[in-house]
Nucleic acid binder design. Structure first.
Lengths: 237, 237
DNA sequence: CGACAAATTGAGCCGGATCAAACTGAGTGG
DNA sequence: CCACTCAGTTTGATCCGGCTCAATTTGTCG
């Protein structure tokens, strides 16, 4: 039951679950779906009747901007539920797109509502997870609003490293990060050209290695200082 | 009982409340507190044991940036609960500051937890309200990340007008908006000087009047078009 | 080998930042 | 009633970070 295991692990990283609660999650009906790169999971305006948990790969939420560009508002990694909000909002107000190949577990709204009703602490854990995502949005507003290109990119890469680490996805200091420079530029609000130059600067300073979807940060503190990154807003245990 | 009336009105604009639910909210113990301009309600790092509802005036959440500047991440108007997330996150990760003079109703976490437990639909309404705030954050990321100064400001002013309107705070097309140009520049990520020039441009084009804390938008559609504003993300009924 | 996405480099330009100064208006106190 | 103060607004001048446009290179996959 890999699908619900991922969810249990995620919720357990926030709350201690009772055996009953763990069983209830394990018993949640879910449907495994494979994602191909750049696959569109939802479009802005859709009204899904289910939610999904990311099991493998990464997912982004983004919006198309007038002139063919796109702003990425958030990345999601293993254990995240990018469209959990549809449980209460109905419509989804941005595109949800797979980054690389991946796998998700789809759970019907109906089943989620039932488990929330029967297990208030699970409901609270779900609510909390949407609050952490909101905290990440706030941080991105600060990052994009007031920081230089170098700081912005440093901050984003720190966040990616820490979140992947928390999801158990960093081995030997290397993080599998299937993002292209286009993704990074769409997320930071920088042009692709300038993002490239900024990344080169980070490499030149020996702060980052990032090739072929593998990210390493030799000196975490130095990069965090450059990007004014502090992981508090991720509310990790 | 003005405190809980405001809350009832806010929740009722989302859900239809049963008489029991309405009574439960009316029975919530709350404490009225007056706010003076620029009063700091919470500082980043605080661990409040209560939440508050804005009754009058406006509140912002913001973070200090290295060089003495500040990025505002969100504004809150009557009926909003800016620190509702502390119910599940504990620590607050940004400053919460009053804009002009105002009044809030403070409710203990304990009492909120109890009402959520006894009335799952009220819990859902609270959850939903945090999801709407998160949707606003996402929109700000897009706004700040990819739009020109003119579009950014237009978008923000449209949002302010619509949210105030939804809270019943617009009369004869005029919105009481106690923001200074400093606030607007801290929220849009523009310098105070450039914000001023941008605002003048909007005035020159006849799209906005904004003097002495009173905002009017003669041609709503024109300003919305300039700012690529669509109110969908506010999830109003 | 060709095709195509992703990454890289170069050159020129512009939107918005910065610095500095002046102006306005609402208190506040003598 | 006037002088003083102080926050907020406005104006002017200059500068620079990041954008744009255009071309080249690299890597990957069929």
């Amino acid at each position: 039951m890999p699908a619900t295991n991922t969810l249990v692990a995620k919720l357990e990283s926030q709350f201690h679950l009772t055996p009953e609660e763990r069983d209830a999650i394990a018993a949640l009906p879910s449907r495994l779906v494979a994602l191909s790169p750049d696959e569109i999971i939802h479009r802005a305006g859709d009204r899904p009747t289910d939610c999904f948990v990311v099991l493998d790969g990464m997912v982004s939420s983004s919006r198309d901007i007038e002139d063919g560009k796109r702003q990425i508002m958030s990345f999601y990694v293993r254990g995240d539920m990018p469209d959990l909000r549809t449980l209460h909002l109905g419509v989804i107000d941005c595109d949800v797109i797979a980054i690389g190949p991946g796998q998700i577990a789809v759970i019907e709204h109906e089943d989620l509502r039932r488990i929330c009703q029967q297990h208030p602490r699970i409901a609270a854990a779900f609510w909390r997870s949407t609050l952490v995502i909101a905290a990440i949005y706030r941080e991105w507003i600060v990052n994009i609003g007031h920081r230089s290109a170098l700081a912005r990119l440093s901050h984003l890469l720190c966040e990616m490293m820490v979140r992947h680490e928390a999801a158990g996805l960093v081995h030997d200091g290397v993080c599998e990060l299937p993002l292209t420079q286009m993704h990074l530029s769409a997320a930071t609000g920088l042009s692709a050209v300038h993002l490239n130059r900024t990344l080169q600067e980070l490499r030149k300073r020996g702060l980052v290695t990032f090739y072929g979807g593998r990210l390493a940060i030799p000196d975490r503190n130095a990069l965090a200082a450059l990007g004014n990154f502090s992981p508090d807003y991720l509310y990790l245990p």
